[in-house]
Design a protein around this nucleic acid. Structure first.
Lengths: 184, 184
DNA sequence: AATTACAAACCGACCATTCGGTTTGTGACC
DNA sequence: GGTCACAAACCGAATGGTCGGTTTGTAATT
């Protein structure tokens, strides 16, 4: 059912994600849905958590693919960008936007985003080492990168030119390098 | 009525922006609203255009405040950031998000965004001169900046720490300087 | 092994409300 | 008197949520 909810968010958007739509997609009766999730709000909050787990899993899967190549920057940016790509992020974006005017959803999204950030930091430490990753300039660079990527992801929901987006990310790698080297 | 629509988008979000809500806020009867805008879709498209005009007006107002101080970068970034702040952008964000799953809205938003971009380019030429602004590295820097600011704006709908956001923007100024200087 | 007792999972009809949109009416202004 | 700008009653469809009832699983009792 949670997968169906995420599917609906991706294909129909937040306002199109009705309980009926989720039922149909999950092949479940109204009673079943309402039995497991007392209200629509419950369903959405559960969906947020579900998304958090899936995106977290993606993250560690990517982290496991780290190699010893000297180009750690490239790996780091690719890892981060992975977090902002695909239907999983699209669904997150819908919830993010909707949570602006929904207090209950907002706190769920905030909690989820914090947990994701923690996993991300762990991955960065794995890539760059504890000492380097703990430097203020480094975490500042990560912060800028996250903001940049949110924007890039937001942009790509209207612009569908994936190749151009890829170029932009590659461009960011050099910016990121500058950021962490100038304070080294 | 268009102002009321924008207000609804800001306070109630896209899914909360119903025709009834707009009526109530505008102090207008159902008949009046439907008379001027044949359907809800028409209303939203008109609201997009309305927003475009308002944000465009903001842009030229800011551009008019240009002075001859040497710190053009700071002015440029502030001008850009102005475009991503306040209720006007909040409403735009709602429409942007909704337009992902609504073809009619999408084309309206795309057109609007193009016109805004054109005005922005004009302002940049005014600040940096035609020759400098025409350099590929320059427009690339602007492109990166826009993506970054979209992300920063998206971030600030969940995080309400404006001071921290301001710091991030200030930090970007130095990044931007590096970007346009390294290819000069 | 069979019976009982109970709980959780599940179903789908039903409800009030709200949605976007239509139709009909009405007064003002050219 | 005809058109325009608005008003209000009204419509069917869809919304989220409730409710009584059925099935299924499970553990204790005999």
């Amino acid at each position: 059912m949670l997968d169906a909810t995420v599917d609906c968010l991706v294909e129909l958007g937040y306002s199109g994600t009705t309980t009926a739509a989720v039922q149909k997609r999950a092949g479940v009766s109204r009673g079943a849905l309402m039995h497991h999730f007392g209200s629509k709000a419950d369903l959405l909050v559960a969906a947020v958590r579900h998304l958090a787990e899936q995106r977290g899993a993606n993250l560690v899967a990517q982290a496991a693919a780290f190699d010893d190549s000297p180009d750690r920057t490239s790996q780091a940016i690719d890892l981060l960008w992975e977090t902002f790509t695909g239907p999983l992020f699209t669904a997150t974006l819908e919830l993010w936007s909707a949570s602006r005017t929904d207090a209950e959803l907002r706190s769920a999204v905030l909690e989820f985003e914090r947990s994701l950030r923690r996993q991300l930091d762990t991955a960065m430490e794995l890539l760059f080492g504890d000492v380097a990753a703990a430097r203020p300039a480094f975490s500042e660079a990560i912060e800028l990168t996250l903001q940049f990527m949110r924007g890039a992801a937001l942009t790509s929901i209207l612009r569908t030119d994936h190749r151009r987006q890829r170029t932009t990310i590659e461009r960011w790698k050099s910016v990121f390098t500058t950021l962490i080297e100038e304070a080294a």
